[in-house]
């Protein structure tokens, strides 16, 4: 983590994005104008910001199991609004 926060790479995009410690990933993406991950309820309930973490450590808040099943969680599917990076991340929006 640099002063600018954790680096977030979106697979297939050349944009270098950052996410602050304790900042929801979705908020960081929207703040930097990256709009391919839609902003929905921001609360883990509606599922529109579903992504997959390809590389890196992260924590999650509560999310609706309808949108991210237990099996999907094990292979790093998550909702960006409830995802908090703990290292630099590589993510994909192709799910």
């Amino acid at each position: 983590m640099t002063e600018k926060g954790f680096q977030v790479t979106v697979i297939g995009s050349d944009k270098i994005l950052t996410c602050q410690k304790d900042e929801p990933l979705l908020v960081a993406l929207a703040r930097q104008g990256y709009l391919k991950v839609p902003v929905g309820c921001r609360q883990g309930g509606c599922g529109v910001c579903k992504i997959r973490i390809v590389e890196g450590e992260f924590e999650t808040g509560k999310m609706s199991v309808k949108h991210v099943s237990d099996a999907e969680r094990k292979i790093n599917y998550t909702l960006a609004c409830k995802t908090f990076p703990k290292s630099d991340l590589a993510i994909t929006t192709k799910i």
Binding site: G40, C41, R42, Q43, G44, G45, C46, K62, S64
Partner: peptide
């Protein structure tokens, strides 16, 4: 607006 579970 949304409640903490995403219900509008």
């Amino acid at each position: 607006f949304f409640d903490p579970s995403g219900n509008r």
